[in-house]
Amino acid sequence: MEPPLVRPSDAETARELANVVAEPLLPAEKWLIGGSLALGAALLGLLLWISRTYFPVGS
């Protein structure tokens, strides 16, 4: 990654942020958030099981 060449000033950043308009969550965004969290929860169990079964560690 290359560092950004031109960094906006604080005033420009503040202006940009002041212009941010709230947008309602679209169904696709809800699906993305919910799907990501659900997949995370489901995979947690699976990955832990694989870790402990196939990649055990001694003490």
Partner: peptide, 23 residues
Amino acid sequence: HAILFRGLAAIIEAYLIYWALVY
């Protein structure tokens, strides 16, 4: 091998949970 797999598993979990919550 255990560190490599567990590292991969940990970041998959972190991505899926962190990103969705912050967003």
